[in-house]
C-alpha cells in the first residue's frame, strides 16, 4: 500500500513515498512559481527514485503554502500538523519541534500522544528564517554548509544588528570593511539567527525532548549555538534530510488516513 506526502513550500518542494509505513524514497527540488507544477515535478522525482508511477499511489496528503492548489491529492493538512507527525514518526517520544524553513520558523509542542498542543511561528520578515542565512551566505560568497562550519573557528564573535535581513547586509559589509574575520562574521550571523529562534522556542517553553528540523538544521553553527541558548541537546532527524519532515509527516498522515478509511 503506497502513499505519498508532498510539501510545497515557497522555496523548495519536497515529496516522500511510503510503502506499508516504510520510507521508499524522497526528493527535494527548488519550487517554481506555480505550486501544482512544483508538486508534480517533485513527486515525479521521488517516484522515479522508487521506480514507481503516479498510478501506484493510493493516497496523497499535501502540505505547505501551496497545498490547496494541487489537483492530484486526497487531503491537505497544515505544515504544523505534518511537521509534528513527521518528527514524532522519526523520533518517538519527541515533545518539541523547532523547524526553521526558508520562509518561516516554527516551534511546535506535542503531547505524549503526538498531538499538537501549542505552536508558534515567527511573525516577522525573513530575519530568523533560512532566507536570512541564504542572503548572508551569498553576501560572503560562502555555501550554506560553510556558513555553518566556519563559525566554529571564530575567535571573537560580536553581536550583529540583524533585526532586519536587508539592513543586516549593510552591517556585514561594514564588518568586512573593518577587517573582521569571515569566521567571526559567520559566528555573528549564526548567533543572531539562533537568538531569534531561541526567543520563539522559549515563548512556548522548551521541553527536554526537543528536535530540530528544516533546512537550517543542517547549519551546525546555528544548531550548536541554539543548544547553548536553550540548554538542551536538540535531536536531529535520523536517516533523512531534515528538510523533508513536513512531507514525511504528510505521508504518514496519508498512511494513517488510508488505514482508517479501510476500517470504516
Amino acid at each position: 500500500m503506497i502513499v505519498a506526502g508532498c510539501d510545497v513550500g515557497s522555496l523548495t518542494a519536497k515529496a516522500v513515498i511510503l510503502n506499508e509505513g516504510k520510507m521508499l524514497s524522497y526528493a527535494i527540488i527548488r519550487s517554481t512559481a506555480r505550486p501544482e507544477e512544483s508538486a508534480h515535478s517533485v513527486m515525479e522525482k521521488a517516484l522515479e527514485e522508487a521506480c514507481l508511477s503516479f498510478d501506484d499511489i493510493r493516497y496523497t496528503v499535501a502540505t505547505g503554502y501551496g497545498r490547496d492548489n494541487i489537483p492530484f491529492i486526497n487531503d491537505a493538512v497544515s505544515e504544523i500538523s505534518c511537521h509534528g507527525r513527521g518528527a514524532l514518526w522519526l523520533m518517538p517520544g519527541v515533545q518539541m519541534i523547532i523547524d526553521i524553513g526558508g520562509q518561516d520558523c516554527k516551534a511546535i509542542k506535542l503531547d505524549k500522544d503526538g498531538r499538537v498542543v501549542k505552536f508558534t511561528t515567527n511573525d516577522k520578515c525573513a530575519a530568523g528564517t533560512g532566507r536570512f542565512l541564504e542572503v548572508m551566505a551569498k553576501l560572503l560568497g560562502l555555501s550554506l554548509e560553510e556558513l555553518g562550519t566556519l563559525s566554529a573557528q571564530a575567535r571573537n564573535p560580536m553581536d550583529l544588528a540583524a533585526a532586519c535581513t536587508v539592513w543586516a547586509q549593510t552591517e556585514v559589509i561594514h564588518h568586512l570593511n573593518n577587517g573582521t574575520s569571515i569566521e567571526d562574521i559567520t559566528a555573528a550571523i549564526n548567533q543572531a539567527m539562533a537568538k531569534r529562534v531561541a526567543m520563539i522556542a522559549n515563548s512556548l517553553g522548551v521541553e527536554r525532548n526537543a528536535c530540530i528540523t528544516g533546512g537550517v538544521a543542517k547549519n551546525v553553527g546555528v544548531v550548536n549555538y541554539l543548544e547553548k541558548l536553550l540548554g538542551v541537546k536538540l535531536k536531529k532527524p535520523p536517516r533523512v534530510d531534515p528538510q523533508v519532515i513536513g512531507a514525511l509527516g504528510a505521508a504518514v498522515l496519508a498512511y494513517e488516513r488510508l488505514e482508517r478509511n479501510k476500517e470504516c
Binding site: 497544515s78 504544523i80 499538537v116
Partner: peptide, 9 residues
Amino acid sequence: MRVDAFMES
C-alpha cells in the same frame, strides 16, 4: 496556515 493548524489541533 496557522488557523488551519490550530483547528486541526
